[in-house]
Simulated assay, not measured.
Amino acid sequence: MYTLINDKLEISVKKTGAELCKITSIKNKTDFMWHADPDVWGGYAPNLFPVIGALKANTYYFEDKKYELPKHGFVRHNEDVMLHEQTENSLTFKLISNALLLKKYPFKFEFYITYTLTNNSITVNHTIKNIDTKTMYFSVGGHPAFKCPVYENENYEDYFLEFESVENSKRHMINMENGLISTETEPVFNNSNKIHLTHDLFHEDALVFKDLKSRTVTLKSSKNGPILSVNYTGFPYLGIWAKPNGNYVCIEPWLGIADSVTTNQNLKEKEGILSLAANKTFKAAYNIEIHNSHLV
């Protein structure tokens, strides 16, 4: 476990998977992250690479060869992730391709994730380097789970997500049998910017959005006001998810998306896939800001 502390927040990151697992107020000891109860959902904030969500039959094809990858890829739960650099206010972890990974993913890469603690916010920066001689194809994203409710005098239903812009986006439904994006959509907003949280909201899996105008969403309590905000500028897809019995909500910025039920499984043609030329570097970051009113 690795820790960063300033005068407002303490954060911790597990070596395994480089997973952010704690955001706590220094002054009042309030916790803002889900505690990863294994009886409900044992994750804190998995890092998603080189795919997001499920592949059809856990399989894809690249240059007519078949490969298999688990849901969300191979960074989460990975014990080969190593601490690369630590400064007073940042932690950088790395995962480098190896012979085992090349059997699942035929690209030589370096994956870095940096957590930077500044004042009352945490920036999560992803850096992917293509060290191969060919173009690589990938997706990358986050899956942070935030405690909800935060305080003992609250219920889950006291919470809502407020987006910075009025939205009319529809959710893209997930096929519950295989985890793939179906052809069906369902209205979520009606010229509104709020999603009220209930446990029933997630009975049909995550809310998946492809066309939100907003780049920031705030988790708010009707009793205690704004708790935290996530800025996902540069991430075209957003997932909102929890286990139906879980007292948390995941706000998931994605560069990529699960396979659709109509996929041809060709990695180059996968929806949302990114391409990176040989010897080039890609970067993307999202930000978590804890509102100061909860840090005093």
Score class of each variant (00 low, 15 high):
N98A: 03
N193D: 13
G239V: 09
D205E: 05
Y159V: 01
Y105T: 02
K15H: 05
P244V: 13
T133I: 03
C148R: 10
T185K: 13
Q86C: 04
A54K: 15
K104N: 14
S169K: 02
K104V: 00
E177W: 00
V166G: 06
T118Y: 13
F107P: 01
G42H: 12
T127P: 00
N193V: 05
G42S: 11
T262D: 15
P187C: 04
K94A: 09
S182N: 14
K29W: 06
L83K: 04
N279D: 10
E152R: 14
L295S: 11
W254D: 12
P253D: 12
S97L: 05
A285N: 11
T183E: 15
F49M: 02
G246M: 12
T281L: 02
I5A: 06
E152N: 15
D132M: 01
H126V: 02
V230G: 09
L20N: 06
H294K: 02
N279F: 10
N98P: 00
K22N: 09
K103R: 12
F189I: 01
K66T: 15
I5G: 01
G43R: 02
Y2A: 10
L267W: 03
F111P: 00
H196S: 07
L180G: 14
K283F: 00
L20E: 05
H77E: 12
T198H: 11
D80P: 05
L207V: 02
N58D: 15
